[in-house]
Design a protein around this nucleic acid. Structure first.
Lengths: 123, 123
DNA sequence: ATTACTGTACTATACGTATAATACAGCAAG
DNA sequence: CTTGCTGTATTATACGTATAGTACAGTAAT
């Protein structure tokens, strides 16, 4: 099925985020071969050029490596993956908390809000 | 001083978010008159057209009203402001949690991460 | 009435992004 | 060797955004 992409932000950026999330969460395993550019483009319902751009950008993080003629592979460096994971998590938390505080919510309020939200979700 | 804007997303969108945050947090009080388009543009170090676009978009939320020749004013409807506040807070939490969960973190882990982060910040 | 301030409107230019349509080099399997 | 798959590169078109420059109608104060 087509990936969930919005038109608010560049598609290639969203693709990068999604693949990174896939690597970090383990959906894509270390050393695993990614589907080809054309396959992924079809799966995401996106132009191959856009997918190509996203994936080539993604290489700069070191999380994937391209083999030119055989395909693209997830890094086997689990240390890199884990460090990216905690790095990203911290960054997301920082951005989130700053946003909430700019709305005038203090940390305690935020924690309560989240706790309530999670409790609701589990119900 | 110039506002903190990045080039990742449309500037007018970021302006809207910032003004909304100002209203929600009380930085801009109900009924208060906003600086003029040109003033705000200068303050944000942005083109007046961009500021104009942001503010006219913002009207659709009802949080501000323009008086055509005298200026723009924050709504006096505190009920509207409060409902927008909780609405936005919930939305931000939802987006945040979804993002974190896409990285393979479960709710408890997330709560701990945040708690740690806030404790560090207060120190 | 003139001056100075509002919001608003319009044209033109520049840039990033997304898509479409091709093309090519390298490798593997038939 | 041919076929079919890789990643990669190139050109053209279209659209949204940002900026620059200019203009105009309505209001208030002088």
């Amino acid at each position: 099925m087509a990936w969930k992409l919005d038109s608010e932000r560049p598609i290639y950026t969203q693709i990068i985020e999604r693949v990174v999330a896939g690597i970090i969460s383990g959906t894509y395993q270390p050393g695993e071969k990614l589907p080809s550019v054309r396959e992924l483009a079809a799966e995401a319902a996106v132009n191959p050029n856009t997918m190509q751009k996203a994936l080539s950008e993604l290489e700069r993080t070191g999380l994937v490596k391209s083999q030119r003629t055989s395909g693209r592979f997830i890094t086997e460096d689990t240390g890199l993956i884990n460090s990216k994971k905690s790095e990203l998590a911290k960054k997301e938390i920082k951005v989130f908390l700053e946003k909430m505080e700019s709305m005038g919510l203090d940390p305690e309020e935020i924690e309560n809000y989240i706790h309530e939200y999670i409790k609701e979700e589990e119900a």
